[in-house]
């Protein structure tokens, strides 16, 4: 694979480094929120959240639809005024310095918002101009970014002709045109096939390695585990848990999960017979989940009690287990 020469986000460390210190002072956090609230009329989408995202971190918002993730992101992106609470982004106040903050962040919105009648390359060069870059600078950055997201072959194609995954990559390339300090990604891989997702993860991982601070929302647990150093789980406008993926699993789940499948309809009554074999069990219509640190042992104990499940699966606990425990299994919308 050709490794791109382009290093988005990494600026020439030099004369401006003092201004970095001045800008952030001792706060250290690129994003800092205290009691942040977003109201739309009577509806409270975000109900008082606290956040500190340090420079260089990959930070995730997890939560079901309607949990308030996107509203929080829009406030951080300075396109949505806060209703109450404190918020600073890059050490600045979004209300007073929204434009200056946006100059230094990259936004990859949930919907692509590309100009479908323009070519792939024009979408980048036109967008770069909004940041006050010269035409020559826009052209050279566009070429580097097209290389980075592997769209060089499509440079002169109309956006209309691109696949969903290509559009998403182009949107990410566009969000990097200003070499942002902070990249905001709202559900970056929703709707993509596995190949496209993995390619995008690879790109995001590289950006992270280059020191770009990433903030993303997702409801894919594997995505959160892959990409995030730390994440918060939001539910109903509030943060219900916070930590690294491993810490969250340790805190809210067990190391392993044993999944037992008996005939449909038996699970409710069998639940009681195995409840003592695990720290926690969950009875679902189609299976029993035993949360335990030693799944194999639980399995043999089940067998020792003369129970014969149709199938047994021992697996590691995942963020999905944490997520479902914290936000419940019922549909939100």
């Amino acid at each position: 694979m050709v490794v791109s020469r382009f290093v988005p986000g990494r600026k020439r460390v030099g004369p401006g480094i003092e201004s970095l210190t001045v800008t952030f002072g001792d706060r250290g956090a690129l994003i800092r929120a205290r009691g942040l609230v977003k109201r739309y009329g009577d509806f409270e989408a975000v109900r008082g959240i606290d956040l500190d995202v340090p420079s260089g971190e990959a930070f995730g918002f997890l939560g079901p639809n309607g949990a308030g993730k996107s509203s929080a992101m829009r406030m951080i992106a300075c396109v949505s005024p806060t209703s109450s609470g404190e918020l600073t982004v890059l050490g600045l106040d979004p209300l007073a310095d929204g434009s200056a903050i946006r100059a230094r962040i990259g936004v990859c919105p949930q919907e692509d918002q590309l100009d479908v009648e323009l070519t792939v390359r024009e979408n980048l060069t036109v967008y770069g101009r909004y940041f006050g870059l010269s035409r020559a600078e826009c052209r050279s950055r566009a070429d580097e970014l097209l290389d980075f997201v592997q769209l060089t072959d499509k440079a002169n194609a109309k956006v209309e002709s691109l696949s969903g995954g290509m559009k998403r990559r182009l949107t990410i390339a566009r969000s990097l045109i200003n070499q942002p300090d902070l990249l905001l990604l709202d559900e970056p891989t929703t709707g993509l096939d596995p190949q496209a997702r993995h390619l995008l993860w690879d790109k995001l991982f590289r950006l992270r390695q280059q020191g770009v601070t990433l903030v993303l929302t997702t409801h894919y647990m594997d995505e959160a585990e892959q990409l995030c150093d730390r994440l918060v789980v939001m539910n109903d406008g509030r943060i219900v848990a916070e930590g690294s993926p491993t810490a969250l699993i340790a805190q809210y789940s067990t190391r392993e999960v044993t999944e037992l499948r008996f005939g449909v309809g038996h699970h409710e009554q069998l639940g009681g017979k195995v409840a003592d074999l695990a720290e926690r069990i969950e009875v679902l219509p189609d299976r029993l989940l035993l949360y335990t640190d030693d799944g194999e042992r639980a399995t043999s104990e089940v067998a020792a009690r003369g129970l014969r499940p149709d199938s047994v699966l021992v697996r590691r606990s995942t963020l999905e287990d944490v997520f479902l425990r914290l936000t419940g299994r019922s549909l939100v919308d």
Binding site: K11, G16, G56, D181, G211
Partner: peptide
């Protein structure tokens, strides 16, 4: 420390 305020407009 990575970013990057170096070339960012104040």
């Amino acid at each position: 420390s990575p970013p990057t305020a170096a070339s960012a407009p104040a």
